[in-house]
Measured scan of single mutants.
Amino acid sequence: TFELKGKVGKVVKIAEDHYLVEVEGDKWIAYSDEKLSLGDRVMVVDVDGLKLKAKRIP
């Protein structure tokens, strides 16, 4: 999973306390310091076990 750092994905679902992000065809649980919206493009900035930390990108 460490190779996911720096990869770009898309928010495909918003849950109460996390997001579901699709990166290279796989879906991952993600969290972010900022509020994300459905369809936002994100970059993986860190990997915490099986969770990704994501940041919105333009």
Rank of each mutant, 00 (worst) to 15 (best):
T1E: 15
T1Q: 15
T1Y: 15
T1P: 15
T1N: 15
F2L: 15
E3L: 04
E3F: 06
L4R: 02
L4Y: 03
K5I: 15
K5E: 15
K5H: 13
G6N: 04
G6T: 02
K7N: 04
K7I: 02
K7D: 04
V8W: 05
V8Y: 09
V8G: 05
G9H: 01
G9L: 07
K10W: 13
K10D: 12
K10T: 10
V11G: 00
V11K: 00
V12W: 07
V12S: 06
K13R: 10
K13E: 12
I14K: 08
A15I: 14
E16D: 13
E16T: 09
E16C: 11
D17G: 11
D17H: 10
H18M: 12
Y19V: 07
Y19G: 01
Y19T: 05
L20D: 06
L20A: 05
V21A: 03
V21Y: 00
V21P: 00
V21W: 00
E22N: 08
E22Q: 07
V23G: 02
V23A: 03
V23S: 03
V23R: 01
V23D: 02
G25C: 10
G25L: 06
D26W: 13
D26Q: 14
K27G: 08
K27Y: 08
K27R: 11
K27M: 08
K27Q: 12
K27E: 10
W28C: 03
I29Q: 14
I29F: 14
A30D: 00
A30Q: 01
A30L: 03
Y31M: 12
Y31R: 06
D33G: 06
D33I: 08
E34Y: 05
E34K: 04
E34T: 06
K35G: 10
L36Q: 01
L36I: 05
L36S: 01
L38T: 08
L38A: 09
L38V: 13
L38D: 07
G39W: 13
G39T: 07
G39M: 10
G39Q: 09
D40C: 06
D40L: 04
D40F: 04
R41C: 15
R41H: 15
R41A: 14
V42Y: 01
V42F: 07
V42L: 03
M43E: 15
V44L: 04
V45R: 01
V45G: 03
V45F: 03
V45S: 04
V45Y: 03
V45C: 07
D46N: 03
V47L: 05
V47C: 08
D48H: 08
G49Q: 05
G49P: 04
L50C: 14
L50D: 15
K51E: 08
L52P: 02
K53H: 10
K53T: 11
K53S: 06
K53I: 03
K53C: 06
A54L: 15
A54N: 01
A54C: 15
A54E: 00
K55R: 05
K55M: 10
K55P: 01
R56V: 06
R56P: 09
R56C: 04
I57A: 06
I57E: 09
P58N: 10
P58S: 11
P58T: 11
